[in-house]
Nucleic acid binder design. Structure first.
Length: 210
DNA sequence: CATATGATCCGCT
DNA sequence: GCGGATCATATGA
């Protein structure tokens, strides 16, 4: 019943529209004992329809089924044999669009994040999709949880970023959709190579600090 | 059934 | 900067 919690309508839009709007918002996980873990989202990636880079591109499977459900739910997948990544489902049911949460700035429950991560440097706690999921204790069993009405995880309204940058998505060799968004100059953004891999391969993304 | 691969992280060089 | 870890998932035989 938190008035700060983002409503369903926030998620029920195109992924590339939701993605930049998620920057500055606060991801919150409430444990059964009432303790909270919270972090300010600083980096995301959108995965749209007809997007070869999206898990939903080849149709619905058991793994990606949640992506095709109603917006405002968590889509969690396991990869590289050891990492979980979390997305928020966007758009309309059947579309299969989502936004990957890539990095955040720890705000609450830092001690718990440190123990879950096994590392104590604040900058390394949530700076990467696998790290973020680990810090929040998110795993496959959290696949499909409702961010709007659920008790476990939600996104609360935060502070608006001063400036937003965008560039090519990490691990995606395509320049047509620069759907990685991050807060300009934010130290908690992951070290994932910024900038499009241009043909001659010398340029960097426009990630200069204002 | 067999196998290739990945929206990654970490430690070592 | 590079490669190993490590396995669920998808796909093809």
């Amino acid at each position: 019943m938190s008035p700060a919690r983002l409503p369903r309508s926030f998620y029920a839009r195109d992924a590339e529209e939701v993605a930049p709007d998620l920057l500055g918002q606060v991801l919150v996980r409430t444990s059964r004992d009432g303790s909270r873990a919270a972090a300010r989202i600083v980096e995301v990636e959108a995965y749209g329809p007809d997007d070869p880079a999206s898990h939903s591109f080849r149709g619905i499977t058991r793994r990606n089924a949640v992506m095709f459900g109603p917006p405002g739910h968590l889509y969690v997948y396991f990869t590289y044999g050891m990492h979980h990544c979390m997305n928020v489902v966007t758009g309309r049911p059947g579309e299969g669009t989502a936004v990957l949460l890539r990095a955040a700035e720890p705000l609450e429950g830092v001690d718990r994040m440190i123990s879950r991560r096994g590392r104590e440097r604040l900058l390394d706690l949530c700076s990467g999709p696998g790290r973020l999921a680990q810090a929040f204790g998110i795993a496959r069993r959290d696949d499909g949880v409702d961010l709007v009405t659920g008790d476990l995880v939600c996104v609360e309204r935060g502070t608006r970023p001063e400036a937003i940058r965008s560039g090519t998505r990490v691990g995606v060799h395509e320049t047509a959709r620069p759907w990685r968004y991050w807060i300009a100059g934010d130290p908690f953004v992951s070290r994932g190579r910024p900038g499009p891999p241009t043909a001659k391969g010398t340029s960097r993304a426009r990630s200069t600090t204002p």
